[in-house]
Structures are given as structure tokens and as C-alpha cells.
């Protein structure tokens, strides 16, 4: 060891120090409300979802079809001007079986988030969504799935217009 100790102690607190008010603190909330514009590419994507379609974008130079769609090809930096209709089926690239919420509370019915490679997009192009109507133990990578849509009158141009994907 060097002569001088490079490690500095700090005062370690526990949750009880707060709940029993053994330390002084201030608790407050931030106000953060936003209305996010969908933009050009995601605007098309959301309109497609409302119509019951999954749209991607195509780069004629790279011959790639990507999803979610975007207006610029990352690979060649040329504009992507063609939005193309993809299938609403795909393949599970990966999944999880999740037992906690965003604030780490337990949930009894696990959620099954997944990356789903969409048919018609170039290999490896997936989107984030959830799986449903399936026993979590039966889910596997490579499983073929299909979108389950909200009824047309309930769709509002949101990723949740797809309720989940189910096994086919």
C-alpha cells in the first residue's frame, strides 16, 4: 500500500434514518409534462398502426428494410423516402419473463417483453413489444408470433394498438 490511504469514508444512511426522521431531508416532486411530436417517420408508423399495418422504411442503396421506420439510413446516411408495408407476424429474437414493475414492486402475473423480428424487414430488425395468450414456460427464442390488434374503432395511432403478439 502507498503511505497515504486513498480510500475515503462516507456516512452511510439507512431507509429507517428517513422513515424515522433521524436525518433532515426534503422530499418533493418534479413537474415534467410533455407532448411529443411523432415526427415524419414515426408519424407514418403510427398512422400505419391505426390502419392495422406495421410499416418499415427502405434504403435503395443498402437494400435494407428497417423497422421502426426512420428518414435517414444509418449505414449510408442517405434519406430513406420509401415507407413499406411489412407483415404483422414475426419471430421472437429474445424475451424476458418479468416479475417486477418499473419501481421494483412485485407483480403476480408476469409480463413477457420481447424483441420481435418483423417479417418483411431485413434480418435482425425487431421491435419491442409483449407476448400474450401463452404460458411463459412455453415461450422460446425463434417462436413464430402474430400481432393481436385492438378492434379498428379503438385504435388511436399508438404502439398499443397492437395489444401483444401471440404464438401462431
Amino acid at each position: 500500500m502507498s503511505a497515504k490511504n486513498p480510500y475515503a469514508n462516507v456516512v452511510s444512511l439507512s431507509e429507517e434514518d428517513f422513515s424515522a426522521a433521524r436525518v433532515l431531508f426534503r422530499h418533493d416532486k418534479l413537474i415534467a409534462n410533455y407532448a411529443w411530436d411523432s415526427g415524419i417517420a414515426i408519424g407514418y408508423f403510427l398512422a400505419g398502426l391505426k390502419a392495422g399495418q406495421i410499416l418499415g422504411s427502405y434504403c435503395a442503396k443498402c437494400r435494407k428494410t428497417v423497422v421502426p421506420p426512420r428518414i435517414v439510413c444509418e449505414w449510408c446516411f442517405r434519406p430513406m423516402q420509401r415507407f413499406v408495408k411489412l407483415s404483422d407476424s414475426g419471430t421472437v429474437n429474445t424475451f424476458s419473463i418479468c416479475y417486477v414493475t418499473w419501481d421494483v414492486r412485485r407483480i403476480s402475473e408476469p409480463e413477457i417483453p420481447a424483441v420481435i423480428e418483423i417479417d418483411g424487414a431485413s434480418e435482425g430488425n425487431g421491435i419491442l413489444h409483449k407476448l400474450g395468450e401463452i404460458d411463459p414456460q412455453e415461450v422460446h427464442i425463434g417462436m413464430r408470433v402474430q400481432a393481436v390488434w385492438k378492434p379498428p374503432e379503438e385504435r388511436c395511432g399508438s404502439i398499443t394498438d397492437i395489444l401483444y403478439f401471440r404464438k401462431v
Binding site: W36, I42, S96, C98, T101, W102, V104, L128, I159, T160
Partner: peptide, 12 residues
């Protein structure tokens, strides 16, 4: 727009 409505958490 396309992920947060699914109520993701970081662990996902």
C-alpha cells in the same frame, strides 16, 4: 412514442 407506452422497466 413507441416504447414507453408499453410500460417498460430498465431490467427488460
Amino acid at each position: 412514442t413507441i416504447e414507453r407506452p408499453l410500460k417498460p422497466n430498465l431490467l427488460w
